[in-house]
């Protein structure tokens, strides 16, 4: 309940944050702090310094850019969930944001923070993978864009360098999309979360992508299942047949007291079916 001591620096700009991260030993970024502060209270994390990017102007906007949405790293989950642009352009993303934690957590937690923390039970990663989002980050070497598929490396590990700061996320819009989660009864994290995108063309599934979090150390795509659904109608039978491939996505399912890896894999199949059906329905 009492974090250990650290130095605190409030960055006025992204450049200053990068500079501080580069120069301070064992420094961590904090924005909303809803991943880091809980860990610090249990002293599971004891950074020597925090670089607070929460006040940097211009990082919390949400805007449409063509068919895509550009979401500032500091956009809170509540802001994403409530955004008319997100609800209209990519309902699944609003649904994902609304499924995170609780009202209080959504008022503080940010999309950038959630992605950078890369918790296996976090909700955003599945959506990012299914949507083919791109993360924009600024580091000592300047700005770069990282595809979601390259971003999540391992449990609590991303492709970000220690001194890189996420500035925004570009998310392609997808009307035919859905995110469904099996909520942990205690932690509210995703035991399993499935994000599905379905594009229809003349009654047949023309494109499909599936992202899944909660089952393994990092969020994964279920490519075999997605491929199996393409090229025919989104019928219940075809969805069920496609979902049967979901297990191939999981190398080593994680388990906890509430749900073993085996059961998580089972749930992933169930939620994949449901998410695909809902996404296809929304695709019209």
């Amino acid at each position: 309940m009492f974090p250990s001591q650290f130095d605190y620096h409030r960055a006025a700009s992204v450049a200053e944050a990068v500079e501080l991260l580069s120069s301070l030993p064992d420094a961590k970024l904090v924005a909303g702090g809803h991943s880091l502060i809980p860990a610090m209270k249990l002293r599971a994390a004891q950074p020597a310094a925090l670089v607070d990017i929460g006040r940097i102007p211009g990082l919390s906007g949400i805007s449409a850019d063509g068919d895509s949405l550009v979401i500032g790293a500091l956009a809170t989950h509540a802001a994403v969930a409530d955004s008319a642009a997100v609800q209209g352009g990519c309902p699944m993303l609003a649904e994902t944001a609304a499924a995170i934690g609780d009202i209080q957590v959504r008022n503080r937690g940010t999309i950038g923070g959630s992605l950078a923390h890369a918790d296996p039970g976090a909700d955003y990663p599945a959506a990012m993978l299914a949507l083919g989002a791109e993360v924009t980050a600024v580091g000592a070497g300047g700005e770069r864009t990282i595809a979601a598929s390259d971003f999540f490396v391992d449990i609590l590990t991303t492709a970000l360098a220690d001194n890189e700061v996420i500035t925004s996320v570009r998310v392609p819009g997808a009307a035919g999309s859905a995110y469904l989660k099996h909520r942990h009864p205690a932690s509210s994290y995703a035991v399993v979360g499935v994000a599905a995108c379905v594009g229809m063309d003349g009654g047949n599934v023309a494109s499909c992508s599936i992202g899944i979090n909660g089952v393994t150390g990092k969020a994964v795509t279920a490519d075999a299942a997605a491929a199996a659904l393409c090229g025919g109608p989104a019928s219940a039978d075809r969805i069920a047949a496609a979902a049967a491939y979901v297990g191939e996505a999981f190398d080593e399912p994680l388990g906890d007291l509430y749900a073993s890896g085996e059961f998580r894999a089972h749930l992933a199949g169930v939620y994949t079916k449901r998410a695909l059906a809902l996404a296809a329905e929304r695709a019209g």
Partner: peptide, 24 residues
Amino acid sequence: TEIGSYSDDGQLLSGTLLEYAVPR
């Protein structure tokens, strides 16, 4: 939902409210 669970070596596996599921 609730269970106070111990591993065989006596570790309390539901020692925080992240694991111990009080009804919501």
